[in-house]
Amino acid sequence: MSDVPASAARSTWNASDWHDALVVEAYAETPTARTIRMRLPASAALPQLPELVAGQHIDVRLTAPDGYTAVRSYSLASAAPGGVLETTVEELDDGEVSPYLVRGLDVGDRLEIRGPIGGWFVWREEEPAPVQLIAGGSGVVPLMAMIRAHEAAAHPAPFRLLYSVRSPEMAYYRAELEELARVSPRFDLDWVYTRRAPSGWPHAPGRLDVTGLAASVQTLGTSALTFVCGATPFVEFVADALVRAGRDPARIRTERYGGADGA
């Protein structure tokens, strides 16, 4: 590598390197979650962010005044080109990093980021199959990147999102999802409310069960590629139920949020 000019080495983006990102926008997504948009400095001297793939995540590093650092992974909510990185962070009880990102961080602050990372829990335009998305709570974030990429591409394969939330106000991206479901011929949306449903909702609140799951996934049928993301018990239940119902395990991709501990 000694014969490579330093300038050429610097211009190469490496997913293992830390990069400064500027917070350009931050707003409450729900009472406990915040959407954060970051931009990388536009400079010809700096490496350029590689093309994002819908479903990827980044690592975020915070540094305290004494040099102590903490790193966590966050899924990106958009893979749109243009150098903006968007995520939504849920504040976790007893969390170390998430309370700072949800309540401490300001527009104009900088964060260090690494990535984008991941080549499995992703959706690409070349994928011809219908796509069934199943999210629990904050697990909708990487699926939102897929929904937005699919819509931006006016992709012909149908997409369907089954989204389980505790109550209406806890849903991420509600207005955008409902508008998309209304206007897009390619996107449908099913809600599950586990604790409290909107007034006039035809079902009593309750956890997603085998019947509800089957009713939602039957529309796209067995050819669908399925992405499931949420807390571990939710993902275990959904993936198990789909396999028991005869779905091909190889067509089900999962991403699980582990315990809230320490995040």
Partner: peptide, 13 residues
């Protein structure tokens, strides 16, 4: 960072 629970990460069912 240290955790006391045991997170689960898997690629599929």
């Amino acid at each position: 960072h240290l955790v006391t629970d045991f997170p689960v990460l898997s690629i599929g069912p």
